[in-house]
Write a protein that binds this DNA or RNA. Structure first.
Lengths: 182, 182
DNA sequence: TTGCTTACTTACTAATTAGTAAGTAAAATT
DNA sequence: AATTTTACTTACTAATTAGTAAGTAAGCAA
């Protein structure tokens, strides 16, 4: 029993996170899946719909995953968060935020909106995690919490981009510094 | 006396750094400059040539600028480096590395190569700067130099992307942490 | 003044793009 | 058994894409 819709979103996500939202076409989806271009339009009438499916699936997965971890120690939760980036690196993909965000001005406004919300959700989650970690003396940094959260997210996000460009494991270096300054 | 070639590269860079390499066409260049699409091809036969011009101009400018600063104190040089990102943020653009890098797999291999070299150059410069700063006791961090350099570059790079997506001044938060942990 | 180079324009092309309308076979529902 | 829905395909279209070939007007050089 096949699930064409999921196959389409899976492939779209991979294409978006390696080639960018403007770097693939419906043919790049339909040909490998052995379906016709119109079959992709059947599930996702516009390209924006397809982009939204990718963004919202990531938002949803993040919410479900982080909720699962929510009873664990903040340092464990942070490790799990960084593991998401490690998995992306292993798959030679950048994160969805980096993929869409760097061509933000070219995106349909509906996609921009979904992305803005996703960014706010991730920042809020990490800020709350860092706050909890400080309270429980699991973390010991002295910087402003929001500044620290933004630094961590940014470093992780770009480590995947810079890693693709340089061919080096930039993420490993970034994780090293995060672990030493938290 | 007009310089059409420079006008083209200026506009191409702006489009690339707001919409991505695959997010603009020759028409987006020719129409605003009131020239014909073939005039753009006259200066830059292929889109790859245009992308290369943008990457190489950035590489060249970086080399010239950093050479100018080379006699200054490492902390001043780091501030000047961060000022480049501040200027990008003010212009609502991401950096060229973030713009191209996030769609790396879709780029012509010649462009990929130029980008890889550019990434190595920037990393090397920052590593040398941090080394000098430690030697002169201007910096006091204890982490591995390469890890620290990669963390700083990554945080700055992604702060522009995340800033566009969230509408917040993420760069200010990132700079705050860099200044407090160097 | 003749020829050459520069900086374009005119007028295309072939391919690709996202997107649509109409049809169809199989499965599910009534 | 008849009808409707699902999951597509066939067959398009209009617009846009990067790219090209041939022409031209102005400036410069021999």
């Amino acid at each position: 029993m096949k699930d064409t819709r999921t196959d389409i979103v899976n492939l779209a996500e991979k294409l978006i996170r390696t080639r960018g939202y403007n770097g693939f076409s419906y043919k790049d989806i339909s040909a490998p899946l052995n379906i016709k271009n119109a079959a992709v339009h059947y599930y996702f009438p516009t390209k924006c719909d397809l982009g939204l499916a990718v963004v919202n699936r990531n938002r949803n997965a993040f919410e479900i995953e982080t909720r699962k971890w929510s009873k664990e120690s903040p340092d464990v939760q942070l490790s799990r968060f960084m593991k998401i980036y490690e998995d992306s690196r292993a798959a030679k993909m950048v994160c969805f935020m980096g993929a869409f965000g760097s061509s933000y001005d070219s995106l349909p406004s509906e996609l921009q909106g979904a992305l803005t919300i996703a960014g706010a959700e991730i920042r809020l989650w990490l800020k709350q995690l860092l706050t909890k970690g400080l309270e429980e003396n699991v973390f010991a940094f002295t910087e402003n919490i929001e500044c620290k959260a933004d630094s961590i997210i940014s470093a992780l996000l770009a480590s995947l981009i810079l890693g693709k460009v340089t061919g080096q494991d930039i993420l490993a270096n970034v994780r090293n510094v995060i672990n030493n300054t938290i």
